[in-house]
Design a protein around this nucleic acid. Structure first.
Lengths: 223, 223
DNA sequence: ATGACCTGATACGTCGGAGGTCTTGAGCGC
DNA sequence: GCGCTCAAGACCTCCGACGTATCAGGTCAT
């Protein structure tokens, strides 16, 4: 195994074992390199790799720190990976979302706060009747993010966030090619919100399923 | 933005845009570095980072290649990230698994082949009545992997694979501390398998839910 | 002719050192 | 007390050199 890979493993080990805790500062590059028995150049490769996946946070002029290691932060790296998938796997991502999102929406139905409900309502009102496609998609993303956040499971939240990336582009196409997509989306959002307000988990789950299934159906027929 | 980060983005761009396709070979380090306008050292940091998350495959003495970019391969990186999570987020991972696994099992019920069913049966038979805890956990992992694989969704498959890491350790503790855990696990596996053989998606889903919920319940009470 | 073996070219792996740039905080003047 | 200056510390980038692994092609014995 290459020295750089060893260094990655060792740093990982220090974090997992608790020797380095979230927010801790690493020794400076030259010291750490000496400590791990490799050159500064090779160590930098290891640090850079861990920094890409948000394990380490490197600040020029300051030092290198262990991140908070929050699921939210770490799963951000997922979206980077997801970006590499071609269109032929979008359907598979969507299928996973179709499983997770209804479940998250149902969970949110029993946990979401009144303030959050009001905020979501205000957001939908602000969008108006016939928004631009870009606004709609952005709002759509925000809407679902808000709901999933209320599920109370940060892993679930981050996972859906990462998975939503590839389907976002698809939704833009849809808005451009399907006439009633805008009105339909708005209608379904209202329905989901109403179900949440009623604390009706099953209705919320069903509307979320319908919502995603409609995107999936369109995508499947147009590929 | 640092030159290394630029390089990462540029290489990513070359792949996403299709200029570099899966299996393609990159120019040698010195040429690529010159092409991207940075030093070989800095480029190596970019390549190393992309190699950690399985975007690139570097072979000493040969060259650097774009990987297959299979979801399975790319989501392997997920397990690396998941390893960093402490025990207090295991419950959240388990909650996500509780959503995905029953759905995957239900999907498998209508798609799994007879050969696969026979293989799973043989695997359970081979384990015997009172296996060691390690054997049981390994077998458990393999059992679920086989079923999820039959769901036909490779993204779902890889995701569950990555998510199962942190709960594996938990299951080992469980086997060590809870007397009837072994027998119970075996019983539930048989039930899931029977449901799959009956092509009964709902029964399969329910048994999978029960199976995971029992782990979750024990874990929740023991933390 | 075929196979194993050797060898050179090629490309990645590692290293040490030299400047450059950014952040931080102490010290100074208003 | 407040704001500014400046020097120290730490990361950023680069260069050039050498080590090591892989592969292709030629050589030689069978």
């Amino acid at each position: 195994m290459a020295v750089t890979d060893e260094a990655i493993e060792k740093i990982k080990g220090m974090i997992v074992s608790g020797a380095l805790r979230p927010g801790d500062r690493l020794p400076k590059e030259s010291e750490l390199a000496a400590g791990l028995g490799l050159s500064r150049n090779s160590l930098r490769e290891a640090v850079r790799a861990l920094s890409l996946i948000r394990i380490l946070d490197v600040r020029q002029g300051d030092g290198t720190y262990v991140t908070s290691l929050d699921p939210q932060l770490l799963l951000e790296a997922l979206s980077f990976v997801v970006d590499f998938h071609r269109d032929d796997t979008v359907l598979e991502f969507l299928a996973v979302r179709r499983i997770l999102e209804p479940a998250a929406t149902a969970m949110a139905a029993v946990r979401i706060s009144e303030q959050q409900l009001d905020a979501l309502t205000a957001q939908l009102d602000r969008l108006g009747e016939s928004p631009s496609v870009e606004d709609l998609v952005a709002c759509d993303l925000e809407f679902h993010r808000g709901i999933v956040h209320s599920s109370g499971n940060s892993v679930l939240c981050s996972l859906l966030d990462g998975l939503s990336g590839p389907t976002t582009r698809a939704r833009v196409w849809r808005g451009l090619t399907q006439e009633d997509a805008v009105a339909r989306t708005l209608r379904e959002h209202r329905a989901i919100l109403a179900a949440l307000r009623d604390r009706d988990a099953e209705a919320a789950r069903s509307w979320a399923t319908v919502h995603i299934a409609s995107v999936e159906q369109w995508l499947r027929s147009s590929l």
